[in-house]
Write a protein that binds this DNA or RNA. Sequence first.
DNA 1: ACAACTTCCGTTAACGTTCTCGCTACTTTT
DNA 2: AAAAGTAGCGAGAACGTTAACGGAAGTTGT
Lengths: 339, 339
Amino acid sequence: MRRRYITIKDIAKALDISVATVSRALRDAYDVNPHTRQRVLDMATELNYKPNFNATGLVKRSTHNIGVLLPAITNYYFSTVITGIQQVANENGFNLILYLTNDSEETEIRIVEELSLSSLDGLLACVSAHENNYAHFSQIIDDGLPVVFFDRVAAHIDASKVMQDDYNGAFMAVEHLIHSGYRKIAHITGPKELSLTQNRLNGYIHALEKHGMRYDPDMVVHSGFSQADGVGDIEILFSSIGSEPDAIFAVNDRKGIGAILALKQRNILVGPQVGVIGFTNDPICEIVSPTLSTVAEPAYQVGREGCSLLLKHIAKANFAARSVTLSAELIARQSTQRS
Amino acid sequence: MRRRYITIKDIAKALDISVATVSRALRDAYDVNPHTRQRVLDMATELNYKPNFNATGLVKRSTHNIGVLLPAITNYYFSTVITGIQQVANENGFNLILYLTNDSEETEIRIVEELSLSSLDGLLACVSAHENNYAHFSQIIDDGLPVVFFDRVAAHIDASKVMQDDYNGAFMAVEHLIHSGYRKIAHITGPKELSLTQNRLNGYIHALEKHGMRYDPDMVVHSGFSQADGVGDIEILFSSIGSEPDAIFAVNDRKGIGAILALKQRNILVGPQVGVIGFTNDPICEIVSPTLSTVAEPAYQVGREGCSLLLKHIAKANFAARSVTLSAELIARQSTQRS
DNA sequence: ACAACTTCCGTTAACGTTCTCGCTACTTTT
DNA sequence: AAAAGTAGCGAGAACGTTAACGGAAGTTGT
């Protein structure tokens, strides 16, 4: 049998005072005699009292829960972001409720539509990949739930957003390849619809143009975000006759790793023959051989920033939505060394 | 201003019936006219009604939340376990609340002690590493909260536990090293107190004994679970004069990776000169060079099994605690090939 | 035709907490 | 010594939902 937990009524009865006084003693210290307050506090620890969040949530119209919705957690970037979110949430007495979409649009829509708004104070969301309708998000925002997007953001929705500097990160990556002496630079990337993809693609294009190199659409391959997708993209680039690239800019490290593996498979020397650079700075970059050059994303910081932004929205209903872009940093390793 | 959400009162008012009828129509279909029920259902979707979990939780004495407490999520094993947990929880209409301890005993104790029992139906826990007092867990279990431990379990507590077969996994790993021709096998492992560590150590010892090899305590190094710890352990083993091992059994893949990196640093050929085997089957095993042999843990399955066990405890208060051990599987790769 | 069921719905209390209001007793002011 | 203020406390309603019970109609059996 599930046990009945200790309530403030029990404390009140034990001390022969009213529940109102107990409630105040436990929170305010206002309108309550220090001596009484101390007796309540002592009794509370003696009885091992724990507040009932359902009850407080009901009357205060706020649980201390924030939701985190994202495609998956089994990769470095997302799990690090969550760690950052968790930190800030924890510091402020908030709990994290985790929702995983497996990168499925249906699952995402189902989760968002079934969301019990009243059991959440706010939501942090990273949209699933294959998406260009955001009606389900608009709905819950209209219903009054504060939402902050991160990484993969919903472009046309008026809500706060936190991302890394995808454009400049991509720009730096490509410029680094050019400075290293590579001349035919391909880009293997994610789904077209995502703003993240578009921003990195733009950085790629503009870096080429700045250095007087022609942008060739055939040198850009769109697919998913996985290592296997990286392998597949290389197959596509290197099986078409003639125009093989001498460098690969991958939209993330997992695809970069896939590219390295696929190139090694083809007996191509990564670095001297074909350069590869990724994006994220997954620890795996230092383990793969050759080590993978990359653009470091401030994943932990994205999490912290996103969460504290959300908390501001929760605290002040009319807090104006803002977009935060955190800067990225180039890290050169062996995979972009020609000699 | 935070908006007021739609309640069953609104539905009742709109249809001019009582809230009790609305409540029944939304759940039971019992004691309510099919026609009325349909009207309620239609009105509910029209008004976009979402149930208030705080209210139901209050009266039913159950939220649909289960907590997951673990050291970190930024590694393959834990994030995969969580994915498994999330799956089962989701299928059964439960939410996941995440608690991260950062492998700090203090943080763990703080979290558990502050836990509002009434806002959780159950808890899945993986204890932090440096621990041998479990009073905080005993407390919440005594208070009536169902708890299931996984991976790193609290040995002397009467609660359900889910783990992989650490003993036999270790036994297989060491036997594989012996069959491959290695003769001086060291073991780099985690904190002594954990049953996981002890079980794998026992598997190591017994495999040696079975093949008539002496167990030498100097060949076992205890430290943490990180890649850096793996590097450090190798330093210790190879800086002592004389008795260098010709194979390393690492308690997990991250330490195995650390070992490989440290050996390469010393210009030792991993495989031919010194064999290395890990535990987990992190995808990184296939990326590092040479690829890392390992014992595959059923991480996803541990998550699923743990969660469904917890759900049984939640459903039936007197459900007897049980220990589930999932089998592990040897995967041989390049790091244990002598030629 | 009357008792005995059903069917369907509403009233009311309860879950644990907070909040508003008002009351008593004491202290200060004039 | 009366008026005014203050400190400390309690009664009662409210949050949104479910559960126990009861009652008014309609239906069935004899």
